[in-house]
Amino acid sequence: MEQDWLWGLAGGGLIGLAGAIYLLGNGRIMGASGIIGGIVDGTAGSQMRERLLFLVGLFGVPAIVVYLAGGSQTNATTNLAVLVAAGLLVGLGTRIANGCTSGHGVCGISRLSLRGIVATVFYIGAGGITMVLFRHVLGVI
């Protein structure tokens, strides 16, 4: 659609607003991989409850809104091997790098964090090379 960029800008604004609320309200960086990862590996400690509630909001409210709006599609691949490999890489990589698109990308770049900028350059670069290799060379995705 031609107005996709406008939806992108509006949705992006909401993502930034959410990050601003989490920062100014709770004093936390809104990083999805850190929030989930800390629950998974038990390092969340006293933040367990607020992180779980963040995830309840993140899962539950889009679920309701999208259901009422008539549904949506992720158009994800149905190749189970690709999905498993991708999930493992995303889980491992974000926790080893200590951040993902929201933490390093949105929250890091917006405060000119060198780590955030470097991480973003590397994950976008690796993503681009992966597309070339697996879509255009191997034709898997």
Partner: peptide
């Protein structure tokens, strides 16, 4: 930071999903 981000980028490219949108 570099190793992790490269691994993450590969997974992100393969499926087009990162942690926030996945949830």
């Amino acid at each position: 930071l570099v190793i992790g981000s490269v691994l993450f980028g590969m997974g992100w490219g393969l499926a087009g999903l990162c942690p926030g949108p996945a949830v």
